[in-house]
Simulated assay, not measured.
Amino acid sequence: MSVAQAKIVIVDDHPLIIQGLTAMLQEHSQFVITASFTRGLEFMSYLREHAVDVVILDISLPDCNGMDICKEIKALAPQTRVIALTNHNERSLIMQMLQNGANGYLLKNASSEELLAGILQVLNGQLSFSKAIEEIITQPTVYERDPLPKLTRRELEVLKLIAAGETSLVIADQLCVSPLTIETHRRNLLQKFRVRNVAELIKISYQLGLLA
């Protein structure tokens, strides 16, 4: 697509970030900042009435999750390019944003050159990443190197109840087994996923799509 006067919207809950990005992008005649928002839902209302070529979107917003907003943007206006601009560099967040349709993922410490190049890349139908993000997403995870752990039906049931915050006593009561049996399942799950605690177990289970 032509990048002449590409319409850009900035969605970030920090006004100083918006001001800085606006000042930087206004120096380039091929871009026009048509609006900016500190809340995601306000932007979605705007998008229903206006064409947007690129939205620069923070993941952490006061009224909603940027990952959810990204998915909504793509459902409402598939032609709108979404560049995540955030401080979050967790692989799970990066992959979720891409799964939800993001065209680029840049860190807020990216240089102005990286951001400008990123906008041009997504306008030309390419994906764009900060150098640091490229390194993260090209590095295979443990579960991409090795087979995924195989869970029994009962282990999956226990996993889902653990993720729901239930104690071993409550899980044992629901599944009509002894608390000792549930503790054994807990230990087996930690071993199979090679994690140290329940928090890590739940996190990796969400990443792998085992928990809805």
Rank of each mutant, 00 (worst) to 15 (best):
V122C: 02
S2I: 12
L61S: 02
N65A: 03
E113Q: 11
A199R: 13
S112N: 14
L189K: 04
N100T: 08
L161D: 10
T38C: 12
R153G: 04
V198T: 08
Q30E: 09
F31C: 05
R91K: 15
G209P: 13
L41Q: 09
A35Q: 13
A110N: 07
V170W: 00
L21M: 14
S2E: 08
T181M: 10
V170P: 00
I83K: 04
V9H: 05
L151S: 03
S111N: 01
I8F: 01
I182A: 02
Y46G: 08
L210D: 11
S128F: 00
I171A: 01
N188F: 07
D13E: 01
E113V: 15
I136M: 11
A6F: 01
C176I: 00
N87I: 08
L16F: 14
A172G: 02
S45N: 15
V55E: 02
D13T: 02
L123W: 02
I69A: 03
E166I: 09
G104R: 02
E183F: 08
K150E: 14
P15Q: 12
A199L: 03
S168M: 08
G101F: 00
I33H: 00
A172C: 03
D173L: 10
L16S: 13
I162S: 12
Q19R: 15
T152K: 11
L211N: 12
K203Y: 12
S178C: 05
N100W: 00
V82Q: 04
I73F: 07
A23K: 12
I137M: 09
L190C: 12
C176R: 06
L41K: 06
H14P: 04
K7H: 05
E114Q: 14
N188E: 11
L169D: 06
Q96L: 11
I8Y: 01
L201R: 13
D12P: 11
V195R: 13
V54H: 09
F31H: 00
M24Y: 11
T22A: 07
G118D: 01
L169K: 05
V9W: 03
A164N: 11
F43R: 00
L106T: 01
V158N: 07
S92M: 10
Y143H: 10
L107I: 01
L106P: 05
T138D: 11
I133Q: 01
I119R: 11
I137P: 13
H28L: 10
F37T: 06
D68K: 15
L210A: 09
T138Q: 14
M67Y: 07
L211E: 14
F129H: 02
H88L: 14
K108G: 08
N100F: 04
S112F: 12
L127K: 14
